[in-house]
Amino acid sequence: MTSYIIRRLISMIPVLIGITLITFILINVVPGDPVVNMMGKRVDAQTIANIRHQLGLDRPLYIQYLDFLLKAARGNLGRSFYNHQDVMKTILQRFPATVKLSLSSMVVAIFIGLTVGIISSVKQYTFFDHSTMIIALMGISAPVFWVAIILQLIFGLKLKWFPISGYSGIECMVLPAIALGTRFAATIARMTRSSMLEVIRQDFIRTARAKGLSERVVIYKHALKNAMIPVITIIGLQVGGLLTGSILTETVFGIPGLGRLSIEAINNRDFPVIQGTVLFTALVFVFTNLIVDISYSFLDPRIRYDGGEG
């Protein structure tokens, strides 16, 4: 197990370096200059040249990149071109909001997804199965930003049950969590259903039933346990997706998370912040995947990572 984890960690290094390189190439290929952008309407060539020099943007590109890489390896991501804050500090300030949004959406998604998925697999091909699955599919099919604004309109403005936007308490997280969570609830519900169906057909369930165990015990004790593995995988993968995919939700609801930070940084061409956020989100994604993979071995003793390729 340990050697597997070490191997995985080592294999991350080229991926992360590749990500910084691609980001670096992209930000330098994309038109738009951070300094010109900062200037606004009044533009003065001398001022631009001066600020470029002060920010080190007049150095050769490969030196800029190597400089970034060497500093990043030591945890120094530089300072924002705009508000001059330390990028690492900025990211750590913003990360909790994104985590909070992701976790609350996950709670919503898991709760709805599992309930719907289990019931509709047990009551396969009934009206409940069909109708909940159609609703679940509609959940996947509606754009998150659209659901978000409709929730704002109904529960925020008309009914005044929850705040329309903001980040000042758990009640602020309800609408964003539902907007973002329903989409993943649908995915989880479908995965749970199909995984349950597959398991229910297997021999050991038949054996359990034959042994005269009650249907409840069969479903919850035996079937669910075995059906959970692919579901956990999906959940794990979604967490990675949630952490990086909440940009629009954060924008519509005004949550000060990483997604908004990265969009702003791109719009401003704030190079250090772009590099920092992309690297950080990639790191989070890669680590969640690792954790998901490791957790398999606990869930399913048949999976061992020590021998050969995983």
Partner: peptide, 12 residues
């Protein structure tokens, strides 16, 4: 896979 998708799209 690890690159934030929407950000990559926007960059391109």
């Amino acid at each position: 896979f690890a690159f934030p998708e929407l950000l990559f799209c926007i960059g391109i």
